[in-house]
Design a protein around this nucleic acid. Structure first.
Length: 112
DNA sequence: GTTTTGACGGTCT
DNA sequence: TAGACCGCCAAAA
């Protein structure tokens, strides 16, 4: 699509994350060829007012680094636990197991 | 217009 | 194996 706004792309990918799955900034940045995971984090920071499951996006360590931006720090953990993702000490258990790569179900052509 | 910071990642030491 | 540094792009001060 013609919408080259990186943040818009991040939003689309983020809301495309399946329930019970999580992804990291690097995967989104790589999939969208943003060139830097910081752009993803920055975009998501702006998205807090939008209705996208940003709680499914974490850093490469599986840590809920963005929980601080949520209305309540525990909200992010609660949402993930509600989706079947176990969280301990603000970190995703078996992160690799719940990890979801955008290119797995999405097409890059759809995000041009 | 310049400098600092940011929900990060990869590489080097 | 662990810690530190640099790079990426954009927004706010």
């Amino acid at each position: 699509m013609k919408d080259n706004s990186y943040f818009k792309k991040v939003f689309r990918v983020t809301e495309a994350i399946p329930m019970g799955r999580v992804t990291n900034y690097g995967a989104i940045a790589d999939f969208l060829a943003l060139g830097s995971a910081r752009m993803v984090g920055w975009a998501l920071n702006k998205c807090e007012h939008l209705s996208i499951p940003a709680h499914r996006v974490v850093n490469r360590k599986g840590e809920l680094s963005g929980r601080n931006q949520f209305p309540t720090p525990t909200l992010m953990q609660e949402l993930l636990e509600n989706e079947g993702v176990e969280i301990i000490n603000n970190k995703i258990v078996d992160f690799e197991k719940h990890f979801w790569h955008p290119g797995n179900d999405l097409n890059q052509e759809d995000f041009e």
